[in-house]
Design a protein around this nucleic acid. Sequence first.
DNA 1: TCTGGGGTCCTTTTCCTT
DNA 2: TCTGAAGGAAAAGGACCC
Length: 415
Amino acid sequence: MLPNVQHQPSFFDDEAPALGAGLVREGAGSAAQPRRIAHLDMDAFYASVELLRYPQLKGLPVVIGGGRRRVDNALQGGERALADIPVAEFPTLSGYSGRGVITTATYAARQFGVGSAMGLMKAAALCPQAVLLPVDFEEYRRFSRAFKAVITEIAPVMEDRGVDEVYIDFTQVPGGQREGGLALARLIQRSVFDATGLTCSIGVAPNKLLAKMASELRKPNGISIVQEADLTKLIWPLACRKINGVGPKADKKLTALGIHTIGELAAQPRDNLLRHFGKSQGAWLHDAAWGRDERPVVTESEPVSMSRETTFERDLHAVRDRQALSEVFTRLCEQLAADLQRKGYAGRTVGIKLRYDDFTSVTRDMTLPTLVAEASAIRQAAGLCLKRAPLTKRLRLLGVRVGTLARAARPDQPS
DNA sequence: TCTGGGGTCCTTTTCCTT
DNA sequence: TCTGAAGGAAAAGGACCC
């Protein structure tokens, strides 16, 4: 099942934290070893979790997404084990109507040209036989916690980057320097598989930027080691878009300048990039192309804002659908308040977000003199924000946000 | 047949104060 | 009292990521 991996439980028992000669870095308390940072990315995470639950779907086109409706009936299978539900009983995309998009699709489904972010109705036209599963975040979070627990057991300095991704600092971990990190990466990969049945891809490099790109080099279930000296050979041939932080806009601008690969980006005079992209982004692009990135692996962070938003089944008019809008608005505020209180936060900035039928959007927000976490207070402030937004066009989405968060004393957990 | 939801961070604009 | 510069905070928008 897992090729080329040998499990060696006592692999690092003999490993002393050996010092590399001449590799001491500047700065108080800095490590004697060169920095070794890993990026770990679970392979097709949501789809893989679903296939563990429903192995009978293996090899079939499956899309995950939509949500709200019509998926549940066949799957509430009574006493039957989930793995025994016949494939024919799963809901398919055939005849789907509604606004949802695909969150992820299995490889078999991608063969039909469907993929992430595609509207489900379009996908239904391309591949009506595809099985449609709802997104089950609870379950993904459960697996997420499980694989992260395995990692921190082995390498405690881990940065959470969402449900299926982490950075890990190998630098000080016993064995973390061996073979450039390959040995430790193998151990982690194997341990994650043993604990969860899921595969992952790992890249190990001198920093987060390169580690992230390295983890994409071999997928699925791959390990890539990138050393500083590999920059020109392994990184420079890649498209600029592969840099984490270069999105569609920046990429388009680069293309217009005749810059396609990271190597071409590195060849640009720094001043040239500063001129076209501004001081901050220009310098960042130049550094990224040269593989420079000093960001630390951050093990803990506080949230900055929390929000709730929803896209309506049909576009709503501020006047004609006043009642429906008001109900959604109140519900969003209540959900947001519940989120804040459950997690123990309150915030000073309250804002709203509107998306119109032409897909343009606006935000309005206001800063309050005191922290709020109650639905009524959020609703009141958000209502004032709403009054400042244009409401002539029909609305497709409404969102409520609370920012400038601070920890609040929780009634159930006095400090 | 258009295009989800929950975030972070950065830049620009606007407003206020000195 | 008016004007302008400078700087900070808040507001708004946008890019990007998972």
